[in-house]
Amino acid sequence: MFEQMTDALDFHGRALQLRASRQETISSNIANADTPNFKARDFDFSATLREANGMAPADSGMREALPAAEGGLPTVALARTHRGHRAMGMGAMHNGQPELKYVNPEQPSMDGNTVDLNRERAQFSQNAVGYEASLRFLNGRIRTMMTAIRGE
Rank of each mutant, 00 (worst) to 15 (best):
R141T: 08
G72K: 11
A128R: 15
D10V: 08
L49V: 02
I149R: 12
T48G: 03
Y102A: 13
I26V: 01
R14A: 00
T114W: 14
M62A: 05
S134E: 06
V115M: 12
Q4H: 15
L73R: 11
Q97I: 03
L135F: 11
P57R: 02
N127H: 10
M110L: 06
N32M: 11
H82M: 01
G112V: 12
D10S: 10
G13M: 04
A8R: 12
A148C: 14
R80W: 00
L78S: 00
A69Y: 12
T6Q: 13
H85G: 05
Q17K: 08
N127M: 08
P74V: 06
D59M: 12
L100G: 02
R50P: 14
M62S: 02
G61D: 07
I26H: 03
F124C: 00
A92E: 14
F45Q: 04
R63H: 05
M146E: 14
G91T: 00
M93T: 03
S125T: 14
K101M: 05
L78F: 03
S125A: 15
R83V: 01
G96C: 10
R121K: 09
A122C: 07
G151R: 13
R141I: 05
A52E: 04
G13R: 07
G130V: 01
M93F: 00
A31F: 01
F43L: 03
G151H: 13
R22G: 03
M93Y: 01
R143Y: 13
L16W: 02
Q107I: 08
R150G: 13
G61R: 03
P74F: 02
R121W: 07
G89V: 02
R22L: 04
R136Q: 10
A77Q: 04
F11S: 11
A92V: 05
A40G: 11
A79G: 07
G71E: 05
A128P: 09
A8T: 15
E51M: 01
M145N: 05
A8W: 08
D34G: 14
R63W: 00
A92W: 10
T75V: 00
I142M: 15
A33G: 10
R136C: 07
P74E: 08
A20I: 03
Q107H: 10
T144C: 05
Q4I: 15
H12G: 04
G89Y: 02
F45G: 05
G151P: 15
R141H: 09
E3R: 15
E24P: 11
M1Y: 13
F43R: 01
